[in-house]
Design a binder for these strands. Sequence first.
DNA 1: AGTCGCGTGTGACATACATCACTAATTGTA
DNA 2: TACAATTAGTGATGTATGTCACACGCGACT
Lengths: 187, 187
Amino acid sequence: MKEKLKEHIENLIALTDDEFLHILSHFSFENYKKNDFLIQEGEQVKNCYLVVSGLLKLVYDDKNGKQHIVSFAMEDWWESDFSAYFSQTKAKMSLQCIEDTIVFSLSFKNYQKLSAELPKMNCFFLEKSNSGHIASQNRILSFLTSNAKEKYEQLLKQYPLLFQRVPKTLLASYLGVSRETLSRLSS
Amino acid sequence: MKEKLKEHIENLIALTDDEFLHILSHFSFENYKKNDFLIQEGEQVKNCYLVVSGLLKLVYDDKNGKQHIVSFAMEDWWESDFSAYFSQTKAKMSLQCIEDTIVFSLSFKNYQKLSAELPKMNCFFLEKSNSGHIASQNRILSFLTSNAKEKYEQLLKQYPLLFQRVPKTLLASYLGVSRETLSRLSS
DNA sequence: AGTCGCGTGTGACATACATCACTAATTGTA
DNA sequence: TACAATTAGTGATGTATGTCACACGCGACT
């Protein structure tokens, strides 16, 4: 399993074996079952997570009790309620397992320690943050330019796997349309 | 004007005078008029920009010739078509002045040079990227949870200034509603 | 002074989508 | 095996918002 983390980081920056062991010591390896929460709305956000296998949803529950999916997180993705993580405040969103999921977990303290001790990790985090930012911007564009059907098609094109792994209800909640509307798109 | 850049960076990381001069030499200082383009869709994206004063819009033109505003950029904001900037490809979006605007410009080459020579700049860029990412996520949430009126009110609350500086038509295009609908919200 | 362009408001109408209600297939499990 | 829970499809109806059309005020420029 360590290999996974090593590969993942070495995709972006070169590491000596010592450096990797040092990095590894800052992470913890965790196992979750379907429906488990990694982050619960209202609680302190201590960690961010790298998904090794499985599938997570980052959800916001609005005042009417309706769930909105801000993001799916699959293999090789970093996820957290980053707003709360970086400011060390309470979570506005929840992070929950759609499938059994294995993650590497990085506490905020260890994150700070790591970037201080090994500056090149900042390069790594920067690349990750940039991709996240760009992905979000594309999603915004999709909201601005597309109707339900187009958004659905874009999603399928971008993540063909997702479609078999998650109930349509969740896809609808990610796209911002009702499950009934989504259902009618296929026909 | 150099002061502005110095303050802006020192908000996040400490700098010696020498370090700042070194940083400064990587930037260029530029002046644009209302309606000028900093980035034109289809062209190579060479720079990203820190807005010193003025106001920019990051726009996407869809296949029907309709304009969609992905982002406004005001004082102290970094903006570019980051997707194209980091991958050094053609712009999918345009960056254009809503008002006369003064910026510091950083070429991709100089960006790379700077982060190699002065690793702590990566901390700075990382913080900026994170805020961008979080802002985009909030915008997505707004699309998921809110109708036209709520989105408009959230925008006014977040940027009370904007409302006096830009035509309603542009606000509508940012919110993803027609100008007519936006107009009817006030009454 | 007059003309033009731009931003804005507003009525009439069209439509994409939400909501509610019901049914049915599938899955997990007592 | 049977029962509840989850997921999905679909009809009827309501509504928020888009689209088209036109009018008005206002600043810029000749």
